[in-house]
Design a protein around this nucleic acid. Structure first.
Lengths: 343, 343
DNA sequence: ATGAAAGCGCTAACAC
DNA sequence: GTGTTAGCGCTTTCAT
């Protein structure tokens, strides 16, 4: 019953014409039923659905895309790491895309350089997508790509120009500021900062929020240490900081760095939080169970993805309407045991 | 120069016919060039490429798929969590898919029940994929879907039947056994186990490996504690275990549970590793920097994804060849400071 | 080594 | 409410 695929499509899957024949209607009517278009009598709709089920009919999206010019897919360019931040954002985006009724096409880049991102975009465009999400939190030069679909940048400003660019933030500045304020409120005179790699937009935003908090109270900003998000880099920075007896409070731009930092402090005989208070950033799942449980700020990935996608879908489906950038999500400082009032 | 999109496809993107005209060849020749088919003179090839670049031509994959019956895409059904394990596996799969010359289409499920998986597969099939990867590490009843493309199950046995099913493992049994052996080698009489949720195939495999190691040495198996992978559940189990003074060694089926466990032990006044040795599973990035640095086993995600994809691509491109299941990747126990010789 | 014709499965526009 | 016609952009087959 299955003659080997001749030319075109795969073997002998049922097509809309088969359904139409079995249901005794035209192909167009089958199409109407499957697209939930109005003006199909309930009786006919039932017959069509029935025939389709009996045949095991599935729409051919390639054909739909070709005929309609819409792929009903959204492409995502993301950093190819399993890091908690990027991975969470990807999961949230996928869910938001699905909820919006689109399919997800992912391309990940190894190193988030402009060329890599451009390549990713290029490949998505070739695949066919109605819109693109750039979840590459890196801000480093601009790539040039000819893009004719709307593009959403999450957690970063537009890195290139497209027909229509949207942005949605994760509110890092505000969150970083809140983290720093928390330490300041505990009576610490100075708050040190272990920043992330400055090619990352998020790292720069957090640095900025930290600086703003200090300046708002007229404090000077201690020299900044730089890490690469890894616990190892937090550890290295921590060894430096441990040498300085004046350090009583540190805000690390990521939980992993905070964990490495704490480890270095403990090894150097500085107690956390009695001698030094530490705040992280992300609220990754283990944060509550490391020793001591980490005070941190929670990143609103879900909210950012949802807001951003609302914009993107709007831009895809109603290009004429102008919409305001998404509001920053609420700030959530999770106070646990790694911070204490200054001794 | 841009008349608004009439019926079909988007506005006025260049098509192969445009390239053909500019290069002074037929459309078929353009097609040949872009598909790296033989029998195109270098001169013509050059002209075509040139024309394409000048026009900003991009192939339309929907049309290619429709005409050829191949989508050049592989679909992935994955669990929608940012957990280190699933996220790492997804990243590895994406990379392997890309390296194999395919595009990735992802569907994530909230809860990995058979219906959810079946729904994901269904939606991928509708999207159009040449093969499917099921990275849903859950083994719970079988769904029934009519699948006519090869399906690769990673880290789990086939959950349903398809035209062609392949499997690739992460070698959990062996790894768990090695972890347990490590503790036994350190002189511990009994090794306790905090298992993962038993709906997860990986959790069952690790339990099995633990049991095998004990039985191989004629030891009895202490009662098993069950967690849900979270640090919180490890913590809860740890509180129980801390009450039992005889416990000197614990193998946790995941790093996060191990971290929660350690926290509970420390709170109960049991030192790690002096009083109790702990081994985790995964080697997530923070494992080296928690206190104490965690002894664990590394999961070979990259290798599993690569091996699995080799099989899948083989099945897609050369359906006639039969191939053996992928070999289990090598075992790597990472010894750090959470384990010590029995006091 | 290159080209012409046909058709993949579907939706868009319009007729009825 | 439903059907007819045309065509989306490409690959296939076969001819040259």
């Amino acid at each position: 019953m299955t003659r080997p695929g001749e030319s075109g499509a795969s073997s002998t899957l049922p097509r809309s014409a088969d359904v139409a024949r079995l249901a005794g209607v035209s192909r167009k009517t089958v199409s109407r039923v499957f697209n939930d278009e109005p003006y199909v009598s309930p009786a006919v709709r039932g017959r069509v659905l029935d025939a389709a089920r009996r045949l095991g009919y599935r729409r051919n999206n390639a054909a739909r895309a070709l005929a309609s010019g819409r792929t009903r897919a959204i492409g995502v360019v993301t950093l190819g790491t399993a890091g908690y931040g990027p991975a969470s954002l990807l999961v949230s985006i996928e869910r938001a895309v699905r909820d919006a009724g689109y399919a997800t096409r992912v391309v990940s880049t190894l190193d988030a350089d402009p060329a890599g991102i451009a390549g990713g975009v290029e490949s998505l465009l070739e695949q066919g997508v109605d819109g693109i999400v750039i979840s590459e939190p890196i801000d480093e030069g601009a790539a040039s790509v000819g893009v004719d679909v709307p593009v959403l940048f999450i957690g970063a400003p537009p890195a290139f120009t497209a027909a229509r660019t949207l942005t949605a933030g994760t509110g890092s500045v505000t969150l970083a500021r809140a983290a720093t304020d928390h330490l300041l409120d505990l009576g610490h005179e100075a708050v040190h900062h272990i920043a992330g790699p400055q090619r990352w937009f998020a790292a720069r935003e957090r640095l900025e929020g930290w600086r703003m908090a200090l300046e708002a109270r007229g404090r000077s900003t201690p020299p900044v240490m730089y890490g690469d998000w890894s616990a190892a880099s937090g550890y290295a920075a921590g060894r430096e900081l441990a040498r300085d007896g004046d350090v009583t409070a540190v805000f690390a731009a990521g939980d992993e760095m905070a964990i490495g930092l704490i480890r270095a402090l403990l090894e150097a005989g500085r107690r956390v939080p009695q001698d030094v208070s530490v705040v992280g950033f992300d609220d990754m799942p283990v944060a509550a169970y490391v020793t001591p449980p980490l005070t941190t700020v929670r990143q609103p990935f879900e909210a950012a993805a949802r807001e951003g996608l609302k914009l993107l879908v709007q831009a895809i489906e109603k290009p004429e309407v102008d919409l305001p950038p998404a509001a920053d999500p609420p700030v959530e400082v999770v106070v646990r045991a790694s911070t204490a009032r200054r001794a």
